Simulated assay, not measured.
Amino acid sequence: MEKNFQSAPKFLANNPQRLRRGKHGSIQAVYSKGGTLLTSTEEVIGRWKEHFEELLNPTTPSMVETGG
């Protein structure tokens, strides 16, 4: 416990600097609807955009709308 107490000031001094930098996530890869691996940032972002547009604007009636 004493060791943790001694290292706490160092952690507290460095932590705000890390928080200010923010998260820098990286987009790795996702699969297209057809099963092709998309690796470029533009393709991956486009696929996520397509995915969320489908979720938010469904083209088929949902079970709630049809009463099922």
Rank of each mutant, 00 (worst) to 15 (best):
H51Y: 10
S26L: 10
S26N: 08
I27K: 05
K49Y: 08
P9K: 09
L38T: 00
M63Y: 13
E50Q: 11
T36L: 13
P9M: 05
W48A: 04
E2N: 12
S32E: 05
E65P: 03
E43R: 01
E2Y: 10
L19H: 01
T60G: 00
F52R: 02
E2P: 08
M1S: 09
E54C: 03
A8V: 15
L38W: 01
Y31P: 00
I45F: 12
K33M: 09
L12T: 04
P61G: 04
N15Y: 15
L56R: 15
E2Q: 09
N15F: 15
P61R: 11
N4F: 06
Q17W: 09
T41Q: 03
L38F: 00
N14W: 13
E54S: 06
E65T: 08
S32K: 08
K33V: 11
S7Q: 10
P58T: 03
V44G: 02
K23P: 02
N57A: 07
E53F: 08
E42I: 07
L37A: 04
R21S: 05
G46M: 06
G25H: 00
S62Y: 09
V64A: 10
K10P: 07
T59I: 13
E53N: 10
M1K: 15
K10C: 14
G25P: 03
E2K: 14
M63R: 11
P61N: 07
V44T: 04
N57V: 03
P16A: 05
S7D: 12
L38S: 00
R21M: 08
Q6M: 07
K3A: 15
I27S: 06
G25R: 01
F5L: 14
N57G: 03
E2G: 07
G22F: 07
S32A: 09
E2D: 14
R21I: 07
L37R: 06
T41P: 01
R20L: 15
V30Y: 02
E54I: 03
R47V: 00
T36K: 15
Y31L: 03
R21H: 11
L38Y: 01
M1C: 13
S62N: 10
S40G: 03
P9G: 10
G22W: 05
P58G: 09
T41S: 02
S7P: 00
T59K: 14
T39S: 01
N15W: 08
T66P: 02
L55T: 04
E65W: 02
L38M: 01
K33H: 11
E42P: 04
R18K: 08
T39I: 01
R18M: 06
R47E: 06
Q17P: 06
N15A: 13
F11A: 12
A8K: 14
E53W: 01
A13P: 04
G22A: 08
N4R: 04
M63S: 14
T66R: 07
N57T: 07
L37N: 05
S7R: 12
Q28D: 08
Q17F: 11
S62E: 12
N4K: 03
A8G: 13
T41N: 02
T39H: 02
